[in-house]
Amino acid sequence: MAEPVIPDFGVGSDCVTQNHTFCTDWVRENWSSVLQPALVEHIELTVIAVGIGFAISLAAALLAHRLRYVERPFAVVSAVIYTIPSLALFQLLVPITGLTVTTVEVALVGYTLLILFRNILAGLRSAPPEVLEAARGMGLTTTQTLFRVELPLALPAIVAGLRVAVVSTIALATVAAFVVSEGLGGPILGALPLNFKTEIIAAGALAVGLAILADALLVVAQRLLTPWAYARRAV
């Protein structure tokens, strides 16, 4: 064990002081102080961003489903937002919302809109015409048709959109560290100037693992929500 470089800063193992590729002892020691809080913040950033993005996209898609002319403006705006590089978007937002979580969330929400809006709308439009005619012919109102037929049938497309949005938001949320010290981007950004490999790899791996786990959870959720889509076909 080497003497601490800075008093009370903790003790670095050989692995850490020599900056080996990956030091499990550092991860163990800094899990509760560095990695776990960053992971929780990262999940919060993602859930809030996708939640708000989903609410906005669902509302816009429902509107566009009824009023066709709503589709193009919303699609164009969300596509334009999608093309802005994230760092540039943060720069654009900082003068308005400052160096806050709001800035980060506005940007992250912005990036979910295109994929969620397109998928929800495509899902709503995927109900076969004969199914809609049967619904109308049996006396379902437009609202009943929406909730009992169109939305359930849109679920596979909606979940597909959510999967892409969640995974890309988890990846993108690391960039939030340029604005606020939140999420798994924090440890990565902090370790970059020192080129401290363990921290970069640990935080990066957590982000990747989180993305894979979230994606798997959504796949399971879809199986539970849409058993009909997985029913064995007639022979």
């Binding site: 076969p128 004969e130 199914v131 809609l132 005619e133 049967a134 619904a135 109308r136 012919g137 049996m138 006396g139 379902l140 109102t141 009992r148 037929v149 359930p152 049938l153 679920l155 849409t226 009909w228 889509a229």
Partner: peptide
């Protein structure tokens, strides 16, 4: 809607709800 609920409706493509 009241009228339609009192009339059975069958079409060629059936239009069963797949879900």
């Amino acid at each position: 809607t009241e009228l339609r609920r009192g009339i059975g409706y069958v079409i060629q493509q059936v239009g069963l709800f797949p879900h």
